[in-house]
């Protein structure tokens, strides 16, 4: 479905990504783990078209999408929940969801999508008229995921969805991600919660210094001594 080949991204003359390749198959839940500054967010932003790539290829359902503008990549069904949520803070929860379904195709099904989002996060239905900025961190993350649901994603990319959340909220978010995957949404998940991430994923990539250093089925990586030592502290 999505395949990234030898992607190189320069950031202020530094090589933020040094030839990254990655595959996401339809229906998959793929994890991307790695420490801070390893280039995970850069990779997601290049897929979304926010950052121009220096070289390489990004193929989406057989067509190249590298160089396309972010709004056109969104039109293709590649939806990102950005790091730090980036909600429209002075707009209400409802307006944030509405903006998620901005494009005509998503707007046509906005009512069903909203119902689905409120089924998953009943709390947001109660808070629909509050401004997004006035919510707690956990609730804001729910809005961020709900906004993405409104966009009718074919591929949902989440960047650190559990950052800054209480363990309880984090567990809830991971469960929701798994549930969305069960509803036929392909997922690419970035997270530093390595144990929880690998537990719900099918396949995983490990990034360090702008390179993929390890990849394999998530269950195998959980048993890998390098993962145990560097990321799970075992």
């Amino acid at each position: 479905m999505l395949s990234v080949n030898d992607l190189i991204v320069l950031y202020q003359k530094l090589r933020a990504l040094r030839g990254v390749s990655l595959e996401v198959a339809e229906g998959d839940l793929v994890a991307l783990i790695g420490s801070n500054g390893s280039g995970k967010t850069t990779l997601l932003n290049s897929i979304s078209g926010l950052i121009p790539a220096g070289a390489g290829r990004i193929m989406w359902q057989g067509t190249p999408i590298l160089g396309m503008s972010p709004d056109n990549i969104c039109r293709e069904g590649i939806i990102q929940v950005p790091e730090g949520r980036k909600l429209f803070a002075q707009m209400t929860v409802e307006e944030n969801l509405e903006m998620g379904a901005y494009l005509p195709a998503a707007r046509a099904e906005a009512d069903q999508s909203r119902q689905m989002a409120f089924d998953i996060f009943p709390r947001l239905a109660e808070r629909r008229r509050q401004t997004a900025g006035s919510l707690s961190g956990g609730e804001q993350q729910m809005v961020a995921v709900a906004r993405a649901i409104m966009a009718k994603p074919k591929l949902l990319m989440l960047d650190e969805p559990s950052l800054g959340l209480s363990p309880l909220f984090a567990a809830e978010i991971f469960q929701t991600i798994k549930e969305l995957n069960n509803r036929d949404i392909t997922v690419l998940l970035i997270s530093q919660e390595v144990l929880q991430t690998l537990t719900i994923s099918n396949y995983a990539y490990v990034m360090e210094n702008g390179e993929i250093i390890l990849n394999g089925p998530a269950k195998e990586l959980l048993d890998d001594p390098r993962i145990k030592e560097s990321y799970l502290g075992l």
Binding site: S48, G49, L50, S69, P70, D71, C74, R75, I79, Q80, P82, K86, L87, F88, A89, Q90, M91, E95, E98, M99, G100, Y102, L103, A106, R107, R147, A151
Partner: peptide
């Protein structure tokens, strides 16, 4: 209006606005 809300969204979070299909 949808377009008007997109104006506000683009002002508050230009990146996120683009990620959700708004042509800045």
């Amino acid at each position: 209006t949808y377009t008007g809300k997109a104006v506000r969204a683009a002002w508050q979070q230009p990146d996120a606005a683009q990620l959700y299909g708004i042509n800045l």
